[in-house]
Every structure is written in structure tokens, then in C-alpha cells.
């Protein structure tokens, strides 16, 4: 295990656990930002520069800001913070998550197909990614463009204040 990966993994995991367990929503959102940045650094460590930068741009720049805005717009001022923040079935949820991890971990550790050495790093330029996007992946790209437009219009319509009906 390389020390760089160990450090990044520890930071990412700690901030992910923190994000899921803080009482204050804003603290959770800020820890989530740290998790996303840690994941972006792991992508950079894995030689996927473009994906790492896109991860920062989209998650830190857009998704995190959206989450923060949503938190500020839905603040419960009537409710005091001493109310339980866990769902009624929290123990079941935790057990399910633990069981999922157990299953995944046994499968991963037991797998023979994963025993392979790290291959030579390929030179991945942004230009290559762009060429692939414009040739082989052109239809997914167009579909994504349509999806994003639809999502944007949908989000605006859902969040728009309904007009007072007489």
C-alpha cells in the first residue's frame, strides 16, 4: 500500500463517516466536500487527471453548492436541535450496511481475477478523451445533453413557487 493512497483513503473515509454522523447539516455538507476532494485526489493518483478535475468542478463547484443552498432554504427554525436525527429503524439500517460491506469484502478478498500487477501508465491526454467523445461515444454524449437540459427544466419547474390559485 503506497503511503499516498493510505493518507488519501484515510482522509476520505474519515470525512465520509463524519459527513454521515454530524448533527448539523452544514457540517455534513462541508465534510462531504472534503470526501469529494479526497476522491478527486485518488483519481489523480490513479493517473486519471481529467476525471479528477471534472470531479472537483462538478462536485465541489456545483453539487456541494446546491446542497448548501438547499440546506439554507429548508432550515427548520421551529424545531430545536435536540430532536433525534436518526430514523426509527437506524439499527436495521446499520446492520444492512454492515452486511453489504461483509459480502463485498469477502467477494473481493476471495477473488482470483483481481490478482494482477499494475500495468504501465497509459498517456491519456484530454485531446484523446475529446476525440473519443466525438466519435465512439457521440450518441451517449447527445443523450446526456438532452438529459441535462431536461433535468434543468424539471428542477426549475419543481422548485418554482406555485402560483396562488383562486
Amino acid at each position: 500500500m503506497s503511503p499516498v493512497f493510505a493518507m488519501l483513503a484515510a482522509m476520505t473515509l474519515a470525512s465520509a463517516i463524519a459527513a454521515m454522523s454530524f448533527r448539523k447539516l452544514v457540517h455534513s455538507a462541508l465534510s462531504m466536500i472534503l470526501t469529494f476532494s479526497g476522491l478527486a485526489s485518488i483519481y489523480l493518483h490513479l493517473n486519471a487527471q481529467f476525471v479528477g478535475l471534472v470531479q472537483v468542478l462538478v462536485y465541489v463547484g456545483a453539487v456541494a453548492i446546491l446542497v448548501v443552498f438547499a440546506i439554507l432554504l429548508t432550515r427548520d427554525s421551529t424545531r430545536d436541535s435536540s430532536v433525534r436525527s436518526l430514523a426509527q429503524s437506524w439499527l436495521t439500517g446499520l446492520l444492512v450496511a454492515g452486511a453489504v460491506f461483509g459480502t463485498l469484502a469477502t467477494a473481493i478478498i476471495g477473488s482470483r481475477a483481481l490478482d494482477r500487477a499494475l500495468p504501465q501508465a497509459a498517456e491519456i491526454t484530454v485531446k484523446k478523451i475529446g476525440e473519443q467523445l466525438m466519435t465512439r461515444y457521440i450518441i451517449p454524449l447527445e443523450v446526456i445533453a438532452l438529459l441535462l437540459t431536461a433535468a434543468m427544466i424539471g428542477a426549475v419547474i419543481i422548485a418554482m413557487r406555485e402560483k396562488e390559485r383562486k
Binding site: M1, S2, F5, A9, T12, L13, A16, I17, A19, M20, S21, L25, A29, L46, V67, A70, I71, T74, R84, S85, L86, A87, S89, W90, T92, G93, L94, V96, A97, G98, V100, F101, L104, A105, I108, I109, L114, D115, R116, A117, L118
Partner: peptide, 28 residues
């Protein structure tokens, strides 16, 4: 080897997310 470690890490991250989604009450 190191592919295992990445996969284990991602499984752990997945479980943390799952635990949070199942146990917390706030939709955000």
C-alpha cells in the same frame, strides 16, 4: 495487491453511504 485495496476502500465508502442513507432522517 493494490487493486484489492482500491476495491475494498470503495466497498467501505459504499457501506458508509448506505448506512447514512438508511439511518438518517433528513432528506438532504
Amino acid at each position: 495487491n493494490s487493486l484489492h485495496q482500491y476495491l475494498l476502500f470503495s466497498a467501505l465508502l459504499f457501506s458508509v453511504g448506505l448506512a447514512g442513507a438508511l439511518t438518517r432522517r433528513n432528506a438532504i
